[in-house]
Amino acid sequence: MRRKPGTLIPLEVAILAAGLELGNTGEVEFHGFQLAKELRDRGSERGLTAHGTLYKALDRMERAGLLQSRWEDPRVAADQGRPRRRLYRVTGDGERTFARLNLDRAEATAIWMGEPA
């Protein structure tokens, strides 16, 4: 999707909303699949976000300073017998950007679903 520099596309708004929502429930850091699931749950039958769409958006948002990520300690992943996760969190800039949008989370979901806010 083409967009003007400095603007957010609906998916990015929804990611910020979902990330902040997860933070409110105590999960400040989240991984890609967890986010895809959260977005699906918020958007009912929309389904899980495609790999390419999701990770491209996360990469772009991280470079814009809205998110930051770190790789989980490999020992933790090894102990649990799974690949290590890349954990994201919404930054202060991300929070402020979301606040400036003057949207609540329901509106952000509506944008993500393509409905009028």
Binding site: L48, A50, H51, G52, T53, K56
Partner: peptide
Amino acid sequence: RCLLGVGADLSW
């Protein structure tokens, strides 16, 4: 998820 993301993968 893979198929629907092919376009985004390539553009990335």
